[in-house]
Design a protein around this nucleic acid. Sequence first.
DNA 1: TTGAAAGCGTTACCAA
DNA 2: TTGGTAACGCTTTCAA
Lengths: 321, 321
Amino acid sequence: MANISDIAKQAGVSKSTVSRVLNGHKHVSKEKRRIILDVMERLEYSPNGNAINLSRGKTNTIGVLVPRVGHPFFHQLLEGIGLVCMERNHTLLVIQTEHDPAKEEASMQYLRDKRIDGLIIGAISQPQLLETMRTVGPVVACEDHQDIVPSLFFNHGKAITMLLQHVEERGAKTVGLCLGNPDSGVGRVRREAFDQYLKTSTLCHGIQWYADRCYSFEDGQALAGQLLTIDLPDAIIVGNDEVAAGLIDQFRKDGIRVPEDIAITGFDDVPIARALEITTIRQPVVMLGRLAAEQLLSDALNQSESASSLLEPSLMIRQTT
Amino acid sequence: MANISDIAKQAGVSKSTVSRVLNGHKHVSKEKRRIILDVMERLEYSPNGNAINLSRGKTNTIGVLVPRVGHPFFHQLLEGIGLVCMERNHTLLVIQTEHDPAKEEASMQYLRDKRIDGLIIGAISQPQLLETMRTVGPVVACEDHQDIVPSLFFNHGKAITMLLQHVEERGAKTVGLCLGNPDSGVGRVRREAFDQYLKTSTLCHGIQWYADRCYSFEDGQALAGQLLTIDLPDAIIVGNDEVAAGLIDQFRKDGIRVPEDIAITGFDDVPIARALEITTIRQPVVMLGRLAAEQLLSDALNQSESASSLLEPSLMIRQTT
DNA sequence: TTGAAAGCGTTACCAA
DNA sequence: TTGGTAACGCTTTCAA
């Protein structure tokens, strides 16, 4: 593979001059520029990205930390981030943590490493890591960690409150809760809002109606099975549409009527929620991804103060409540 | 930020020795190793990734080309690839093309660039590009381009045949077809298999029962509306579970019974297909991602001959046929 | 407008 | 077991 020296030699100029045309600098004579471009063409020259990165001290690459790209929230987030990357000529490095603390910690290495210019946190189970991360490079979170790093996130607390209010209005006296990862920022916020709401309401909750680490349709089906062995609550708030769908599916198979016997709410408004007419929360996740990426990029360029902001959810009322 | 020279100086050894402990080489005295590690700790040293990449001539990073990460097929593929990357200590660079030819072409740059060690093609609209790509670095495709590059892909033709055979056995005399992008490789293969089957069977198809560019739940609902203005076929083969779900949903709302009045099949076996009990085709997409990544990595290491292979679909018979 | 040379932070070869 | 030094391929500063 030809390198910059080969080009310089063949064109009869110095590396500096070649570098100048490479970077579109002025102050290069028309003739030399033409010769250099010719030689490049002839030798099928292509600059080495790592050398550029090393020399410039930056990579035009941003990393994003997600537990799993298959999860609807995260792949929508990735899509938004990816779009901004395209527009602004950046590259997207995806780090899947599978909620593994060790992997979360290892991800910091990329930043330290200088292999990425900045990092977007999709979700993190050890927020304390953020303290160190932000000393290593620009970080933006898509969960509420605004006391530590700039954060853009949905008002999950408000969403939970809206759901509880809604099922209560529909006449529920008892309510269950099913979360994904209870240790994530989102998990904790949801849990807190749930507990908070109950304190000021006559709605009842008992530990037998609590579950977590439910992520899939099948997890929902399994949960339905468990719930059937006890008295059902009047309503259950589920942190994810697919899990809600699994619950509904299994309940109906077992002759439990939704919403008459139990009201069920989902989260995210993915297609399955529309198909099953699930009452759920809609959030513009792709947009969140875009905003986070834009924030990070302008941050990395010191173009603006880093700010946090809270995006509002909307309640989609359908047939399961 | 401390670099390797700083460490060497403070530890009173040469860069070479530091490099040796960094890479876990033997032939370093216990004592020096300890001193060096101490200094590293004290200075919070972290090696520069770009320098390593440049020096080694490789990055332990693989790229993957997808139209859109939000599409179910592609995010499942990404998930599989991502898992292998984790296991084998590699990093995943995601390139979203949005079907844009210019972006597909630009993606080659990463390979040329040496910023990635290999490239996985999720989908590409200009297969001729692959000719050049494979001269630039290792490439594996997840569509059928086996005449050009190693390819791992599903047998879509077989899947269509299985579906047609199944609905015919169930008594269908007339059948419709609904595709996504008819110009994609997958679209063409499916169409061809469909036409082929009809030639050797008494099943009937008419142009009024054909549709394409249907991608979403809503597209399915709209299609149901259109079909209702004409005589329904006995069965319809739909290229995507979400579209099938939309069809079913709208039909049921309009009092059409599925499968009695019309049998409907989907494709992909995503959660919505399980929720609605849709007869569909299951393809282990995450596994395809894993296999492709493993193929690429062993390829990049010259560990094996590059081979292509055809993965078999399975028919999931449920309640809509 | 051009070129020489000093980085950038590693690895790896060759001697010692 | 160690160290010196030449790569790796580019950018950038300083002089000319």
